[in-house]
Design a protein around this nucleic acid. Sequence first.
DNA 1: GATGCGTGGCC
DNA 2: TGGCCAAGCAT
Length: 365
Amino acid sequence: MANSNITVALLQWYDANHRIFPWRVSPADRARGVAPLPYHVWLSEIMLQQTTVQAVRPYFLAFVERWPDVHALAAADNEDVMKAWAGLGYYSRARNLKKCAEQIVSDHNGYFPDNVADLKALPGIGDYTAAAIAAIAFNRPAAVVDGNIERVVARLFAISTPLPAAKAPIREQMSRLTPQDRPGDFAQAMMDLGAIICTPKRPACGLCPLNADCAVAGRDDAEAFPVKPAKAKRPVRRGTAFVAVASDGSILLRKRAESGLLGGMTEVPGSAWTARKDGELGAQAAPFDGDWKEAGTIRHIFTHFELRLDVYRADFTDRPPLEGGWWSAQATLSGEALPTVMKKAIAAAIETAPETNLSRKGLLL
DNA sequence: GATGCGTGGCC
DNA sequence: TGGCCAAGCAT
């Protein structure tokens, strides 16, 4: 089948307006036969799941420098991978990233599969990522559908079916539009268009290369596509965290359970986080006795709840032991697998004691 | 199909 | 400021 007007116009736009990323091969280089490394495509796509390119860029560069190929990553220490991922969020991605690297080496001789079905069988790779790797790394005409493309296609054809039911017709249209000759560039072009022109708010229809073929171009309700279900209000959970500080500035840490929220990451001791509304829990949940003093309450927004965490601090000269815990010196603290919420809690505790040199936030954040 | 799962930036 | 949004996946 010949390429449609939409396909041709979009690829022309992409040739002149594509974004530049460290994991991307430009259309000009690709036309000369340069192909991106599957390892780079895979790593970037995992990092980019529900994450902005600005947040991903430094993590991607750090990972490829430290672990240049899938063999290096497969041989890496699990804890080192979690530490390197700390701050990027959705930590199951890091656990699955490591598992996937190991499977590529053990089951695929170190080479990424070049087709959607085999890619989807790997940990952390779903419909989107399998299609993206197949198209971008192996030039397979897979129908790539991410959040950007859902928005672009829903507007192009004025699809009024609400998500997620609209995913099926959107995928059909994407499958129909994807060209045999440049499927990887086409997928990236659709995503760039969604990020630059066909934005969620105030789309720049006047600058859009698909303007003449779009069902909603210039309509004042273009923003209304795709139709999304109403979101539930975010509940509040409360908890207590304990920052134990030794005389040399070391802080007591422990490891969270491998699965679930912040699975496998490091934390300071604390209570469970619950929906209780019966006032202060206080220092009851402290890991051991001490002169625990209130250091403030931090607020942190997770995807599905808001956390209000009461932070307590106490200073110790004897470094009491904690089952499964360890004291981390201030020089090593920034290298721990601490999620952002825990860095906030530690910073809150440190700032209440400006006499310590840990109070320089730069050491922690 | 619905739910759990992070974080930072934007208006 | 609070809600929305960002290259989704696993269960």
